[in-house]
Structure formats: structure tokens, C-alpha cells
């Protein structure tokens, strides 16, 4: 085992965490807005507008059909524009956020659709406005499904950061490619793989714990 291994891994892990955190946050914000819009504008929705729903749906499908590595290349100029560079973890956050947002939007859309129309009608029947229904009924009622879905999304983003590492984003993925693959450092390769596996486990476990806590609160029997 080489002495530099720990330093390399620590740096890689920190970069990965940095990318995952910010990309997840931005992708979640964009995905939430898109997902909610999809649900409320669809036919029979709270703010029915089939045209808007179709436009957003098509954009999401368009972005999702691009392989992620190509999307990163396409978004390089945008990264340069927003953060001033097309290299490094910060630049990757731009591509990661935009690449993952449509994926999260679909997951969020599906979670929100699980809320029964009857609950929203009940809220309508007491005179609640669409905005009130979205924030006080739709989102809280869908919360367990949302957390479960977003967990899948964040794990997806973690995978994407490794891909982004291949073209200069830094992080554990880049470590595995640059050292493990190109310089035949098997110890680095194995160590990064183990860390990524652990990282994904921790994310999944956190998501599960939150869902469990919500269920325990709402569905416990005395």
C-alpha cells in the first residue's frame, strides 16, 4: 500500500461529496419545479394546461435521451459561462444538475401522482387555492414516496459524478480512471470502488431511515 493512497482517496471523496451535494440540491430544485408543473398542468390537474405539460414533457424526454457523457460535452460552454471554467468539480456541478434534473422531475412526478384525487378534492371543497393544495396537501401527502424517489435520484447523481470524473471533473471517478486504469494502480481502483459502494449504501440507508420515521409517525398504532 502506498503512502499517498490515503491523501488521494480523501481528496477524491471530498470532491465527490461536494459534487453530489450541490448537484443534488440544484437538480432537486429544478426537478421539483418541473415535476410539480407536470402534475398540476396535466389533463384534469389543478391548473390544467395540456400544452404546457406537453412542452415540459418533451424537453424532459429530450434531455433524458442524451447519454450523460455527451450531455456534459454539450454543456461545457454553459459551465464556462456560469462558473468560468469547464474543468474541475465546480464546472461538473452545472452539467450534473441539468443532466439529473429531468430524471428527478419524472421521479417526483410519479411520487406526486400517488396522492389520490379525492384528497385534493376535499381540499378544494373547503375553498383551498391551487397553491395551498400543492404545498399543504400534494407535497406532504406524497412525502414518503418523494423521499424514496429522491434517494434513487441522489444515487444516480453519485454514479454520474464518477462518469463526469472521466472527463476532468475530479472526484473518486477521476481517481479510478487516472490512477487505477491509466497508471495501473490497482490499490487505488479497488479502494475507490469500495468507497463508492459505501457511499451509495449510506445514501440509501439515510433515505430509508427518513421514510421509516415518517411511517412510524403517521401509521403507528397505539
Amino acid at each position: 500500500m502506498n503512502a499517498d493512497l490515503v491523501d488521494l482517496l480523501r481528496e477524491g471523496l471530498l470532491e465527490t461529496l461536494y459534487m453530489v451535494f450541490w448537484s443534488s440540491l440544484f437538480a432537486l430544485l429544478i426537478g421539483m419545479v418541473l415535476g410539480i408543473t407536470l402534475v398540476v398542468t396535466e389533463k384534469g390537474g389543478l391548473l390544467e394546461s395540456p400544452k404546457l405539460s406537453k412542452v415540459i414533457g418533451s424537453i424532459i424526454n429530450g434531455v433524458r435521451s442524451l447519454p450523460f457523457i455527451i450531455l456534459i460535452v454539450l454543456l461545457l460552454p454553459l459551465s464556462r459561462l456560469i462558473v468560468g471554467t469547464s474543468l474541475g468539480p465546480t464546472a461538473a456541478i452545472v452539467s450534473l444538475s441539468i443532466g439529473a434534473a429531468p430524471f428527478l422531475a419524472r421521479i417526483i412526478e410519479n411520487s406526486l401522482k400517488e396522492v389520490s384525487a379525492g384528497k385534493m378534492e376535499a381540499a378544494k371543497s373547503v375553498g383551498a387555492s391551487p397553491i395551498t393544495i400543492i404545498f399543504r396537501v400534494l407535497i406532504p401527502e406524497a412525502m414518503p414516496a418523494l423521499v424514496r424517489g429522491v434517494t434513487i435520484g441522489i444515487i444516480g447523481i453519485t454514479e454520474f459524478t464518477a462518469v463526469a470524473g472521466a472527463i476532468g471533473a475530479g472526484g473518486l471517478g477521476s481517481l479510478a480512471i487516472r490512477f487505477g486504469y491509466q497508471r495501473f494502480r490497482e490499490d487505488v481502483l479497488i479502494a475507490t470502488v469500495i468507497i463508492i459502494i459505501l457511499l451509495v449504501q449510506v445514501i440509501q440507508w439515510s433515505g430509508d431511515s427518513i421514510v421509516k420515521a415518517i411511517h412510524k409517525k403517521r401509521y403507528k398504532f397505539e
Binding site: 389520490s116 379525492g118 384528497k119 378534492e121 376535499a122 381540499a123 371543497s125 373547503v126 375553498g127 383551498a128 387555492s129 395551498t132 399543504r136 396537501v137 406532504p140 401527502e141 412525502m143 403517521r218
Partner: peptide, 26 residues
């Protein structure tokens, strides 16, 4: 105009108190 439903349509995320308070908050 109050309304009650066959399937109740209560909000699972809210307690009895919060469910009943909802129309007043609205």
C-alpha cells in the same frame, strides 16, 4: 359549503387536529 365523502379523504400527513384546522387556516 361543507362536504363529506364516502372515502373520507382525510390527509394522512396531518393529525386529527390539523385536518380539522385546515379549512380555518384556508
Amino acid at each position: 359549503i361543507g362536504m363529506i365523502f364516502q372515502q373520507f379523504h382525510l390527509l394522512d400527513a396531518k393529525t386529527v387536529y390539523q385536518n380539522v384546522a385546515f379549512p380555518l387556516e384556508v
